[in-house]
Nucleic acid binder design. Sequence first.
DNA 1: GGGCATTTACTTGTATGGTAGTATGGTGTA
DNA 2: TACACCATACTACCATACAAGTAAATGCCC
Lengths: 229, 229
Amino acid sequence: MSDRKREIVALQPVRISVVDQLHAALRMAIIGNDLSPGTRISESEVAQQYGISRQPVREAFITLANEGLLDIRPQRGSFVAKISLAAVLDARFVREAVEADIVKLLADTPDPALIADLRGQLARQQELIGGSARDFMEADEIFHRTLAEGADKGNAWRVLVEMKAQMDRVRFLSSMHFSVARLIEQHRAIVDAIAGGDRPAAETQMRQHLQGILSDLPVIKQERPEYFL
Amino acid sequence: MSDRKREIVALQPVRISVVDQLHAALRMAIIGNDLSPGTRISESEVAQQYGISRQPVREAFITLANEGLLDIRPQRGSFVAKISLAAVLDARFVREAVEADIVKLLADTPDPALIADLRGQLARQQELIGGSARDFMEADEIFHRTLAEGADKGNAWRVLVEMKAQMDRVRFLSSMHFSVARLIEQHRAIVDAIAGGDRPAAETQMRQHLQGILSDLPVIKQERPEYFL
DNA sequence: GGGCATTTACTTGTATGGTAGTATGGTGTA
DNA sequence: TACACCATACTACCATACAAGTAAATGCCC
């Protein structure tokens, strides 16, 4: 053991609570549009399906409601939240603001190790072209999280995840309306700007990247008005 | 009834659930440092105090935990979350990024009505100098919310509230370490920049305003290390 | 007195029962 | 036929009971 501080990592509890497992499952189902906006899901029904009691289901529901993914109406029922145009637009706005500042930081002091990591991810993303939307979304999430953590803003990532969820829901409604290749190209431009220490370029590229959804949104809303509020 | 679309406003439920009331009360208590970081609060204890069952208490706890204000340790107890320096710094970072973009928008198209509102608030804030920290915090919250809503980013305000909570907790630990007068002066500078349509100035002023806590934070941490993680 | 196994009192996690409120479909009436 | 009324079958909300795990106090042994 050397002189430097020992890394103290919190031990993960071996058992993940029923609530957390259920929450993760439902969250994925909602974002991936396996549970469409407006769908009714009742506590007792879900409890029965998973072979657990109503209580943990209820707790998972509460967290989903806090995240804006579920709409609990007392004495009436719980429904997968319809997509609020304003909520999606504001989520996008928040992401743009925060991630723009993140890449500015990264461009100020480019870290070779980080850049190598990112370039590796770009290569992996290339391989996903033509694959499932879900796989690319996952890679995309890792990419953006790497940026946040590279700028030592791991806690900020938590809110970005929530914002990203709102946006990804929309994308999953119609995976035809965005070009994966174009997104990867934008990712590459961001990495290049960071690597070159070009702060304004990094900001511009990130903002453009996150503005992409603005053109898809009206199309999707027109196609699937019943999914929107 | 005229030809224009009728405004459909959602009817508010008259009764606020026990859970929501309790959550609000506990949240205020934690932010206002009536419940200090590290304090143990048990479900059954709180239930007894408020004359309700454990169930709604538990649900309020879950939401508080999601907000990062409570630390629920299974089979061990629930504790008011200690303040994480990283969490506060990242919350500040997020606020700076988002609110900077908000005032940029506002400066692009200055709205006389909004500016009049804000100037009125500045006058009210002046009257609060020397008053309780809690009163000023409330006025401060209204000010920043007005900016967000003025830019039509009401949904974004939701996440800002969560970030603000982390920061306000710190400030309440030691209300001596910041000058209300200086904060109001900064508010005024922000409003002036918006009114003048000066986008870069608005951004700069907002960023400076939100960087203020950076100087207080180390002092407070040194004074009350037991409150920090 | 010090170390250790055990007990005990506590915690949160989960299951279930009862209540009040809401939607719906059927029925009687004008 | 159209409408008001009511029985019924849901819903989520809240209370209560039990299970599983933790930690501190206890008492025993060395």
